[in-house]
Design a protein around this nucleic acid. Sequence first.
DNA 1: GAAAAAAAATGAACTAGTTTAAGACTTTTA
DNA 2: TAAAAGTCTTAAACTAGTTCATTTTTTTTC
Lengths: 197, 197
Amino acid sequence: MLYKESHILILNNVSRFINLTELEKQKYISLLTEINIKRKAFLMQAGDITSYEYFITKGCLKVYTLDDDGAPHISMFAVEDYWTGDMASFMTKEPTRYFIKATEDTELLGISRANYELLFQEIPKFERFYRMLYQKSLISYIRRSNHGISLTAEERYIEFKTKYPNIVNRITQKDLAGYIGITPEFMSKIITKVNRR
Amino acid sequence: MLYKESHILILNNVSRFINLTELEKQKYISLLTEINIKRKAFLMQAGDITSYEYFITKGCLKVYTLDDDGAPHISMFAVEDYWTGDMASFMTKEPTRYFIKATEDTELLGISRANYELLFQEIPKFERFYRMLYQKSLISYIRRSNHGISLTAEERYIEFKTKYPNIVNRITQKDLAGYIGITPEFMSKIITKVNRR
DNA sequence: GAAAAAAAATGAACTAGTTTAAGACTTTTA
DNA sequence: TAAAAGTCTTAAACTAGTTCATTTTTTTTC
C-alpha cells in the first residue's frame, strides 16, 4: 500500500519505538484525523477542553500561556515531526490554560480522546510506544528545566540558537524572548551584543 | 498472603493505574530490592551510572545538581510514596549529573534495569502502568515549570509552603532556597518578611 | 504599492535578587 | 559536654533584567 507523505512521517516516528504490521499501520492511520490551519489561527485557546493530541507534519506552532499581567510565556515551538497539545486537558477534560497558535500555515494529524483509548485496545503495543515517548519527553523536559536554571539569559539564547538553528529563523525575536523568559527589549539588547562579536 | 508495610505501599501505588492478580503481585515484589540508607548518605552521585529506579517507603531525599560555580540546584524533595532516580542515566547508561542524598534515614524499594525490562515481558500490564505514571509526571512537571515562571521568589515560597506543608518542616531553609532558585540569604529575608505578617 | 500594524532598537530610571562579609544561633561529633 | 561545623540573620554595595517612552524598520493588509 502507498501512503501519503504525512502518514509516512508519523509511521516513521512511531517506528522509533515499536514495529507495526501492514494491517496495524492501516488501522492506526484510520484512527487519525487530518487538520490544516492557516498562519495566525489557533489550534486551541485557554478555556477550551481539548479532545485531540497532535502530530505536526508541516509548519510551525507556538505553545504559550498568558500570566496574570497578560504577558505571554512560550513553553515550546513545535515544528514537523513534533507532538503537541495539552495533555493535562486531554486527559482530565479540564479547560486548558494554553494557547497554541500557528506561526506558519500548518498541517497536523490529530488523534481524538476516543480513538486514543481505542488504540490501546486494538493495538496494545501502543502502550509501549506511549510509555517510551513519555519517558523520553520527561527526560528532555527535566534536563531542559534543570539545565536552564543556572544560565544567564544570554547563555540561554546562545544555547537555543545552537540547539535549534532551524527554528530560530522561523520565529520572531519577540516570541523567542517569551520562550527564553525575558522582555523583548532585553532580547534585542542581547542579540545586538552577541552579533557584535 | 501477608505483605510487609513497604510492599503494601508500593502495591497501592501501582493499583492507582492497574489491577494485579495475587500471583502478579508476588511476581512484582520478587523483582524489587530493599535498600536502606542513613541520613547524609548518597543514593547516587554525579558520574555514577545508575542501575535502579527507586520508590520511597520511608524517609526523605533531596535530588540536586551542582552548577559550574558549585552551587546546588535542588530539583525535587522525595518522601514516602514518591518515585525517584535519574531516568536519563537509567535508560541510556550514561553517567548521571545528579546527587541524591538522604536528609533522613530512608527506606527504598529499587527495581534494577534488568528487572525493569523483565517486568514488561512477564506482566505486560506494566507498560500501561508506566505509560500512565510518566504521563502524570509529565503533566505535573510541565505545569510546575510553566506556572513558576511568572512568580516572584516570595510567591514561589508561599506556594511551596501551601502545597507541601509536610515537606517544609523536614528540610533546611538553605535547601529550600536551592529548590526555589534563590540564595539562602534572600530566602532568609523572605521568610522573615512573610512571618512578620 | 500606500497605509496601517507589528516588530525591533535604543536609552534612562528602576527593582528583584546577588554578593560579600561578619556575627549569632543550632546541630553534630568526638 | 566542649569544640567544630553548619545554618541563619542582617546589612551595604552591586548587577541582571524590567519598565516606560520614543523612534526606526519590517511586515501585513487592502
